[in-house]
Amino acid sequence: MMDNVFGLYNYWVVIFLMMTGFYIVISQRNLIKKVIGLNIFQTSVFLLYITIGKVEGGTAPIVSEGFNVYTNPLPSVLILTAIVVGVATTSVALALIVRIREAYETIEEDEILAQEKLT
């Protein structure tokens, strides 16, 4: 049991972080905060991947003399791509927010909904 706790401790923390981000996304009414939440959610998933790749006693996967154990490079590769995707999403989201603000004069979800009901 204790073995499990220590072995999985890192994952649990990551899960907590992911869920915090997820919570922000679905609970906040402010559009910018939603985007922040998305960001945290995604960043935490990146952490999950990196955690997967870690090898005990390993070192960064740069081949050099004197090291035999390397940390798995593949998750790093994937996450490099994913980070970029994340930023791309964020930027589109922010652009949308700017436009929404212009059209509705607010970036609060409830107020936008209220305006739609009226028109």
């Binding site: 960043t43 790749g53 870690k54 390993g58 490099l80 980070i83 922010l94």
Partner: peptide, 24 residues
């Protein structure tokens, strides 16, 4: 966690660019 490449990218892109965009 021995992922320096990712770390640098995250610091630059995630912490840097995203934040700047959001601030803008």
């Amino acid at each position: 966690l021995d992922a320096p490449d990712v770390a640098f990218t995250e610091a630059a892109v995630g912490a840097g660019i995203s934040t700047v965009l959001a601030l803008a």
